[in-house]
Design a protein around this nucleic acid. Structure first.
Lengths: 123, 123
DNA sequence: GGCTACCTACTTCAAGTGTAGTATGATAAT
DNA sequence: ATTATCATACTACACTTGAAGTAGGTAGCC
């Protein structure tokens, strides 16, 4: 797997949110915040199809797009890539976040997850 | 601040490790693992100078390079960018790591940090 | 004083990304 | 059938990134 550029990732996020067999019209709606031309979205979809991230299925006059890589799967891969690129360990990553000023809510959420991860399989 | 491409980031990592006023010869040593031609390193340094990430100082016949952005500073920025790009919250990022299989050591390290972050300023 | 070695500055070049225009083919309306 | 419409496929193009070659200056050496 390869890391995706920002724009293509945005398209994937839209696809993950809409589920399988999504039409381009629906995608356009999801992606309006970016103000892209319709053609632009098409290009990104084509590239994602090339890279094997989405499947294209012809349905009458238009296409339906389905993610081939799940969000969880991609995140698992990407998060590790992030560590390798710069941080080395989860600890260092979170330390960097803390320096930047983690919100109290974020901190608590994280703590809760850690408890769960730890409690979950017996300390 | 902008996120750096992989190669330029490797050069920055070398610079952070060597401290200020580093000669290119020293950098070359640090960067041998990448097997780049000497010229290549020069190119990356020039680009980093353009972007304002390193200062170049002429010392006689050669140049000395100094990072203008600290490692901590960059990491703080980058870690938040990582969240914005895909995860949304520290929790989601760590959850993704956990799915991918976090090592027990990594988990403990992280837990220790969290304890410290929490204990540090009164729960 | 000309050759050699070393550096740095400038140039190049292919692949990847961000963004969109043009061409083509099917549809629907008249 | 003819045309207006609309989606998709193909092409374009500038900018960035990954990687390195060439050219030109300075310094030591003989």
């Amino acid at each position: 797997m390869k890391r995706l550029p920002d724009t293509e990732l945005e398209v994937m996020k839209a696809l993950w949110a809409t589920g399988p067999d999504t039409s381009r019209t629906v995608l356009e709606d999801k992606l309006t915040p970016f103000g892209w031309a319709a053609n632009t979205i098409n290009t990104y979809l084509a590239r994602l199809a090339d890279k094997g991230f989405v499947a294209v299925r012809r349905e009458g006059k238009s296409n339906l797009y389905t993610p081939l890589v799940g969000r969880d799967e991609y995140q698992a891969f990407d998060s590790r890539a992030v560590l390798d690129r710069l941080y080395g360990s989860p600890r260092n990553f979170v330390a960097a976040l803390a320096r930047e000023g983690m919100g109290r809510d974020e901190l608590e959420e994280l703590q809760a997850l850690l408890d769960q991860l730890n409690g979950g399989q017996g300390k």
